[in-house]
Design a protein around this nucleic acid. Structure first.
Length: 472
RNA sequence: GUCCUCUUCGUCUAACGGUUAGGACAUCGCUCUUUCACGGCGAUAACAGGGGUUCGAACCCCCUAGGGGACGCCA
C-alpha cells in the first residue's frame, strides 16, 4: 500500500501545539513508510481565511523541518472540481437543492432546543420539486433514512458506532456557491489518494458524513486515525487565537525545532522508557497503534528540560544557525568576542534556552562595563584595595587557564578574608560583569580573557575612586 | 439536552489477567563545588468510585461520577 498522509489546516489562526502534533504524526507516518506527505490549505471559509496565516503555516512547517511533497494545495483553487461533482450528485439524486431560509432553519433549531432534542434538518426540501428558479439555495447531501447504525474503524479509537438517524441531510454547498468542509475534505482526500487521515478527534463526528459522501459515489474510503486532544494547562481546548500556545511563542522563547518536536511527539505517544528522540529516531520508532486515546495537557518545564538535552548535543554549526537571529535581535556583535565558540559551547551544555546562551554571551562582549545600581558597601577603601590587589596579580605573566585563575582568586581570599568569602566573590563578579549572582568567578575571568578583565577592573577602580572622592 | 469519547503519581507516560504498579519532568532532601549553577545520589507521589467475571483484575463486563469533543451556510 502506498502511504499518503496529509496535513490540512485552515488558515484562520495561528498553529498551536495540537495542530503541530497532527502535522508531525502525519509527517512521521508518511516518512516512515517512504510515502508522501501532502499539505493542503483548507481556505473555503472566505470570511475568516487570511493570507497571513497561510504564510505562518508554511513558515512554521519549514522551521520544524516538516517538509511536504508537491506544491501546497489550496481548496480555493479547486472550486471547479467540487462543482462538477456536486452537479453529478444532483443529477444522480444523491444530493438536492434546499430553499429553506436561514430563518426557517433557526426556527426548527429552536424547537429542537426547547424539546431538548438534537437539531437535525427535517428534510423539508428533500423530496420536493421546485418549479421556480430561485437562485438562493443550498445543496444538501441526501442521506439514507433508516434506523441502522453506521460503523467505521479508527486506528486509534477502534470501532466507532453511530446511529444513522443521528446524521442528517447536511449541507455540502453554501448559498454563495462555495462547498462546505465535509464535502471538500472527503473528495480532496480521495482525489489526492490519501491513504491515512490523521487528525484531531474533534473530527470524529465528521467522519461518518465524509465516508457517506465517498460511499454514495462508490469511491474508496481512506483509513482514519483520530488523535486525542491536547488541552491547555486549564484542561481546555486550545484556541487558534490564543497567543499562549501559538508555536511562535516557542520559537521566540529560544526552543530548538527538535526540542519542540521531541516534546510533542511524546504527548499521546511513547516508546518504552525513551524520552529523547532525534527526528530520525522518531521516524523509525513512531507507530499509530501506540497512540493513546486520552487527552493530555501541556507541561512547560518538561519542554525546557528536553530543550536543554538537545542544546547540549546539537552540532556547533546548527547551534550557531539558530542563535544568530537572537544575537541579531539583541544587537550583539559576537564577532567582538574572539573566543565565542568556546563560550557558546560551554553554555550550550548548561542552559535550557537559546536566549540564556545569548544572555551569557552578552556578558563577555564589551571592553568596558556599565554599572546599574551599585551597592553602597562596594564604595570603600577596602574594596578599592581589593580591586587593585586583584588587578596586580591577574595582570602578571601567566598562562590563562582555570587553575592559574583560581590561584589568583585564592590569593585575594587569603589577603582579604576579613571581608568574608561570599562578599569577595560578589564584589569581583559585580565589577567584572555588573551582576553579583551569576556564574562561577573563575569561568567569568577565563572567558573574559586578560584584556577585558584588566580593562574592566581598571574602569571599576576609577569608578570607585571617583565615588570615594565625592563621599570623603 | 442528545450523540461520540476518555479516566494510572502534580504533569507526560509504562503495564497487552499474576510487577514491591516501572520511567521521565516537576517538587523535596543529601552531595560535589571556599560563591552561582551544572552534575551525582536519594525520597515523597498514581490505578476515579462501586458492583460483577476469574484461583487471581489497573487490564475483561456493567453502573455511577468526572473530564473532553461534536451537535453551524466554521473547519
Amino acid at each position: 500500500m502506498n502511504i499518503i498522509t496529509r496535513f490540512a489546516p485552515s488558515p484562520t489562526g495561528y498553529l498551536h501545539i495540537g495542530s503541530i502534533r497532527t502535522a508531525l504524526y502525519s509527517w512521521l507516518y508518511a516518512r516512515k513508510y517512504n510515502g508522501k506527505f501532502i499539505l493542503r490549505i483548507e481556505d473555503t471559509d472566505i470570511n475568516r481565511s487570511n493570507k497571513k496565516y497561510v504564510k505562518h503555516i508554511l513558515y512554521v512547517l519549514e522551521w520544524l523541518g516538516l517538509y511536504w511533497d508537491d506544491q501546497p494545495y489550496y481548496q480555493s483553487d479547486r472550486y471547479d472540481f467540487y462543482q462538477d461533482i456536486i452537479n453529478t450528485m444532483l443529477n444522480k439524486g444523491l444530493a438536492y437543492k434546499c430553499f429553506c431560509s436561514r430563518e426557517r432553519l433557526e426556527f426548527v433549531r429552536n424547537i429542537c432546543l426547547t424539546k431538548k432534542k438534537d437539531f437535525l434538518y427535517d428534510g423539508f426540501c428533500r423530496d420536493k420539486c421546485f418549479s421556480y428558479k430561485k437562485k438562493n439555495y443550498i445543496v444538501r447531501f441526501k442521506n439514507i433514512i433508516d434506523k441502522s447504525v453506521f460503523i467505521f474503524y479508527d486506528i486509534v479509537y477502534g470501532k466507532i458506532i453511530i446511529s444513522n438517524n443521528k446524521i442528517d441531510d447536511f449541507i455540502i454547498r453554501r448559498s454563495n456557491g462555495i462547498p462546505t468542509y465535509n464535502f471538500c475534505v472527503s473528495l480532496d482526500d480521495y482525489d489526492m489518494c490519501v491513504s491515512h487521515i490523521i487528525r484531531g478527534n474533534d473530527h470524529l463526528n465528521n467522519t461518518p458524513k465524509q465516508i457517506k459522501i465517498l460511499d454514495s459515489l462508490n469511491l474508496k474510503v481512506p483509513l482514519y486515525a483520530h488523535l486525542p486532544m491536547i488541552l491547555n494547562v486549564n484542561k481546555e481546548k486550545m484556541s487558534k487565537r490564543s497567543k499562549n500556545f501559538n508555536l511562535k511563542r516557542y520559537i521566540k522563547s529560544g526552543f530548538l525545532p527538535e526540542s519542540v518536536l521531541n516534546y510533542i511527539v511524546r504527548l499521546g505517544w511513547s516508546y518504552r522508557d525513551k524520552e529523547l528522540f532525534s527526528l530520525n529516531e522518531m521516524k523509525c520508532l513512531f507507530s499509530l497503534e501506540k497512540v493513546r486515546k486520552s487527552s493530555c495537557c501541556l507541561n512547560n518545564k518538561k519542554i525546557k528540560w528536553i530543550n536543554k538535552c538537545h542544546l547540549s548535543s546539537i552540532s556547533y554549526k546548527r547551534l550557531l544557525y539558530y542563535l544568530k537571529p537572537f544575537f541579531f535581535k539583541r544587537k550583539i556583535f559576537f564577532a567582538k568576542i574572539n573566543n565565542i565558540s568556546e563560550i557558546i559551547s560551554f553554555f550550550a551544555q548548561r542552559t535550557d534556552s537559546l536566549i540564556d546562551i545569548v544572555n551569557y554571551c552578552d556578558l563577555f562582549v564589551d571592553k568596558k562595563i556599565k554599572f546599574t545600581k551599585v551597592n553602597h558597601d562596594y564604595i570603600s577603601y577596602q574594596i578599592y584595595n581589593l580591586l587593585q590587589f586583584f588587578l596586580k596579580h591577574i595582570s602578571k605573566e601567566m598562562s590563562w587557564n582555570k587553575s592559574n585563575i583560581t590561584l589568583v582568586i585564592n590569593l585575594c581570599l587569603r589577603n582579604y578574608f576579613f571581608l568574608g568569602y561570599a562578599k569577595i566573590f560578589q564584589v569581583l563578579r559585580f565589577f567584572l560583569i555588573g551582576k553579583e549572582k551569576n556564574l562561577s568567578l573563575n569561568i567569568i575571568i577565563l572567558f573574559l580573557q586578560k584584556n577585558k578583565v584588566t580593562s574592566r577592573i581598571i574602569c571599576s577602580i576609577k569608578f570607585v575612586k571617583s565615588k570615594l572622592k565625592k563621599t570623603y
